[in-house]
């Protein structure tokens, strides 16, 4: 298991694939939120977790964090910083989804246009997808740290 992890982190081609998966996913997820922040704010409200004063600010800023971090990962510039932000966001998404799953709260994740996770199955799928992306994110971050320490 350890050797698989080492191969994944040290293999340049695999790291490029990981960066592209993360970058394309986050950029694609940002477009509809940027074009309709009001709708995204309504979705954030639907999570039932955030203070009312912060909902609009989250709706304004998060899509641009997604867009620029995704873009930088694809371009291979400031990979460490971009990936650190993506990992923090993913931890936040996973925590928000988990809390609502535990308390049986129905919500729309708002991840992609037309996506809806009102059903239990979709929420679980969403959770596993974000955990998968977080694994990729950690791999890219560790790879970048190792490269910089050499």
């Amino acid at each position: 298991m350890n050797s698989i992890g080492t191969i994944l982190i040290h293999n340049r081609k695999i790291q490029v694939v990981f960066r592209f998966i993360l970058g394309i996913t986050f950029m694609a997820a940002s477009f509809h939120k940027i074009s309709d922040p009001g709708q995204f704010a309504q979705i954030i409200y639907g999570y039932g977790l955030f203070p009312e004063n912060l909902i609009n600010l989250i709706a304004i800023f998060v899509p641009f964090f997604e867009f620029f971090c995704g873009l930088l990962l694809i371009m291979g510039i400031w990979k460490g910083g971009a990936c650190l932000i993506i990992n923090i966001m993913l931890v936040g998404f996973i925590a928000a989804i988990s809390i609502n799953l535990i308390r049986g709260y129905e919500f729309d994740c708002g991840c992609f246009p037309g996506s809806s996770s009102s059903r239990y199955f979709n929420t679980i799928t969403l959770l596993f997808r974000d955990i998968f992306l977080l694994c990729l994110g950690f791999s890219v971050l560790i790879s970048d740290i190792q490269k910089k320490t050499r």
């Binding site: 304004i60 800023f61 899509p63 641009f64 964090f65 867009f67 620029f68 971090c69 930088l72 400031w78 460490g80 910083g81 971009a82 650190l84 932000i85 971050l141 970048d144 740290i145 910089k148 320490t149």
Partner: peptide, 22 residues
């Protein structure tokens, strides 16, 4: 210094995202 550099990159990306967002 590596963590400092990554944090610095993250801060610059954050500032760019916030400015563009506004």
């Amino acid at each position: 210094s590596v963590f400092g550099k990554i944090t610095q990159e993250a801060c610059i990306v954050s500032i760019i995202s916030i400015v563009f967002g506004l």
